[in-house]
Nucleic acid binder design. Structure first.
Length: 272
DNA sequence: AGTAAACTCCGGAAGC
DNA sequence: TGCTTCCGGAGTTTAC
């Protein structure tokens, strides 16, 4: 669920509250969420100052004062909530971070446990080795290289190692608004269309960030607020409803093993 | 009751 | 042969 706009909203919510905070203690209630093993998480972080909250693609990174970073991946149903120490704990609360002073607790809640955290090296360069360029940062030249491959457009946008941050929702929205069928091969898309997709993708992501993301079911920002971009979806979740551009019924099909929404007349398959 | 769901990793088959 | 792409299963809980 949380894709780039939702993770960015979480980062923006946490930043003013947590930057500068010093860790008092960490509780690991569900060990399987700590990917490198739970041993040492508290020891490693206790007494350290959180200096920055960063995001790359769907990944959040907390930098701590001397040379430690904690990466967080929210998976499908993960959330990071700011709550007072006395507040009742939500079910599926797996990690609790406490800070010095009157700063609220940070709680990692994740019913499906697809998310996780792991310790890493502090900020090294613009992006980490296992992720492609961030979808908001990627330049047109780099984007063209990505789309020079003989692979379905849907798969190219969704592969985090190729391009980081796009998930099912924004992928379908970006392809619709660019008039590209998700099955079209990267190397069958014209230069002009690739440029259009690059422009459209960023515009959608920025619009979604401004709307604080899309709340379909579970997603909430760290202060509990919902997003509103779901009201502006053109195809996602609109199977059978008329296309807002031409009136044709929106279709839902499986592409790259993912449920995919498209308008068959606005998004023709092209082949060169 | 069965199935699908917004994610990622991984192994192996298939394609070029 | 070797690289790229494709597919399905696992991990987990909830809701329709």
């Amino acid at each position: 669920m949380p894709e780039l706009p939702e993770v960015e909203t979480v980062a923006r919510t946490l930043r003013p509250v947590l930057e500068g905070a010093v860790v008092r203690s960490v509780s690991v209630l569900e060990k399987s969420l700590v990917r490198h093993g739970p041993k040492g998480l508290g020891v490693k972080l206790r007494g350290r100052k959180l200096t920055a909250v960063r995001r790359h693609g769907k990944r959040l990174t907390f930098d701590f004062d001397p040379g430690v970073a904690l990466h967080v991946h929210l998976g499908m149903t993960g959330s990071l909530m700011l709550e007072e120490a006395g507040d009742p704990r939500e079910k599926h609360t797996h990690l609790v971070f406490r800070f010095e002073g009157s700063i609220p607790e940070l709680r990692f809640v994740d019913p499906r446990r697809f998310g996780g955290v792991w310790l890493g090296e502090p900020s090294s360069g613009r992006f980490s080795a296992d992720l492609g360029p961030d979808a908001l940062e990627v330049g047109l030249r780099e984007f063209r290289t990505i789309f020079s491959r003989n692979r379905q457009a849907k798969a190219l946008l969704m592969d985090q190692g190729t391009l980081a941050g796009m998930g099912n929702i924004y992928c379908d929205e970006a392809l619709f608004r660019s008039g590209i069928h998700p099955l079209t091969r990267g190397n069958d898309i014209t230069e002009a269309q690739v440029a259009r997709l690059h422009r459209t993708m960023k515009k959608i992501l920025k619009g979604a960030i401004a709307a604080r993301g899309s709340t379909i079911r579970d997603y909430r920002a760290s202060d509990g607020s919902e997003g509103s971009f779901q009201f502006r979806h053109q195809v996602y979740g609109r199977e059978g409803e008329p296309c807002r551009r031409c009136g044709t019924a929106v279709m839902r099909v499986q592409i790259a093993s993912r449920s995919t929404h498209l308008c068959p007349s606005c998004q023709p398959i092209t082949k060169s």
